[in-house]
């Protein structure tokens, strides 16, 4: 079994989906299979990076990510990672994160 950590990045398939309850939270639904494969625990900060941008989400192991690796809610956080060519699905690199991001972390930089 692979044990990913701060110094080991891995690739994951990420799907962006509507999630009314979580759309304002940095929550990433992770499939049970994928979580087991990378030894990811429920609640662990998960940093997802793509195209020089990254967001740290709180990982939640969920049946609603079955079929892919990770599902993130459509909204502000997903927009930091997606682009017009990969609006609904993309491959990203993941690693263990520190603190879960907030909207203000990004907005205060603007």
């Amino acid at each position: 079994m692979l044990n990913f950590g701060k110094f080991l990045k891995m690739e994951a398939r990420v799907v962006v989906a509507r999630d009314v309850l979580n759309e304002e939270k940095a929550v990433a639904l992770v499939s049970k299979d994928f979580a087991e494969r990378v030894s990811l625990k429920n609640g662990q900060p998960l940093k997802i990076s793509r195209n020089k941008n990254s967001v740290t989400f709180r990982a939640v192991i969920s049946e609603f990510a079955e079929g892919t690796d990770i599902v993130i809610p459509a909204g502000f956080y997903a927009s930091q990672l997606a682009d017009f060519n990969a609006f609904k699905q993309f491959t990203a690199s993941i690693e263990v994160g520190d603190e879960v991001d907030t909207v203000d972390d990004f907005m205060n930089d603007r």
Binding site: A17, F64, G67, T68, V71
Partner: peptide, 10 residues
């Protein structure tokens, strides 16, 4: 038809 298990798919 979906790429992942959604609530509707369930």
């Amino acid at each position: 038809v979906d790429v992942r298990m959604s609530e509707t798919a369930k």
